[in-house]
Amino acid sequence: MTTAWHALAQLVSWPDLTEVRSSCGTGRALGSAGGEIAHFHSDHGVDLHLTAGAIRRYGPDLRRSTAIRLVPGSHWVTVRVECEADVSLVMTLMSAALRAHQEQPDTLAASAARCNDRLEAALTHRDAL
């Protein structure tokens, strides 16, 4: 079992999370009462919907982590999951995401925004031009 799937296996047992169909069409997803909250795109990639407020609050710490990628304008963060410490990071960020969704959910338009999977590909392509 790869590290991202190990994280998913742990998270599906959390009472506030259920496995749902990924709206981006890639991989597997977890949802909460506020909608989709995590996408597991690959053996080593997880997108977490933290909300704009949580990204502002935790932004400096998130930017210091080499395992985390922030996409400008996105309310999702991408975590590269390569070892058990990264799995722990996903668990911590999931707790923060659940709390953020309960305390100050994103607006309906922001909640409907897609994860970083497609955004990252578009940005990477644009940057290459």
Rank of each mutant, 00 (worst) to 15 (best):
L123A: 09
I37L: 14
S74F: 02
P72V: 02
I68W: 02
T51F: 00
P15R: 10
H75G: 15
A4Q: 07
R69C: 05
I68R: 10
T2Y: 10
D47A: 06
R28P: 03
R28W: 02
H125R: 15
T26H: 08
A113R: 14
S65I: 01
A54Y: 02
L11S: 10
A67G: 12
Y58L: 15
I55A: 12
S42I: 02
N116V: 08
S13R: 15
L123Y: 08
G59Y: 06
L108A: 14
H125M: 08
R21C: 04
S42R: 15
M94C: 05
H6K: 11
C24Q: 07
S88I: 11
A54M: 14
V12E: 10
D86G: 09
L11E: 07
A52S: 09
Y58N: 13
V71A: 14
R114Y: 13
L123Q: 08
T18G: 06
A29D: 05
C83V: 13
A4G: 03
T18D: 07
R64G: 11
S65N: 10
P105K: 09
T18M: 01
M94Q: 04
R57Q: 14
V81D: 03
G27P: 02
G31D: 03
S95H: 12
R99V: 10
T107Y: 08
I55K: 11
L98I: 10
L119R: 15
R56K: 03
L119K: 13
C115I: 06
A33P: 04
A97Q: 01
N116H: 04
L48D: 05
L123H: 11
S95P: 01
E82Y: 06
D127G: 14
H39C: 12
H49W: 07
L108K: 04
L11K: 06
G45F: 00
L62N: 14
A122C: 02
E36P: 04
C24K: 09
R80T: 12
V12R: 11
V12F: 00
S95T: 15
H6C: 01
T3S: 03
L62Q: 08
A122G: 04
E84N: 13
P72N: 12
I55H: 12
G45S: 14
T124D: 13
R80L: 14
T124I: 13
Y58G: 02
Q10G: 15
A100M: 05
R56P: 00
L93F: 07
R28I: 07
A96P: 00
L108M: 13
E84A: 13
S111T: 14
L8V: 01
T18N: 12
R80K: 12
L108P: 00
P60A: 13
E103W: 01
M94S: 06
W76E: 04
D47G: 04
E82H: 10
A110Y: 00
P105G: 07
L30Y: 03
R118Q: 10
V12P: 00
S23W: 02
D61L: 15
Q10D: 11
V71H: 07
L48R: 09
E120P: 00
R126P: 01
G31E: 10
A121Y: 07
R21Y: 05
A109V: 11
A9K: 05
T18P: 03
V77R: 01
H75M: 01
H75C: 04
D127T: 10
V46Q: 09
L70G: 06
V71M: 12
L48S: 08
V81K: 03
M91E: 12
H125W: 06
A128N: 12
L108I: 02
L70E: 15
T92G: 12
S42N: 15
E19P: 06
G31M: 07
S74H: 04
G34V: 02
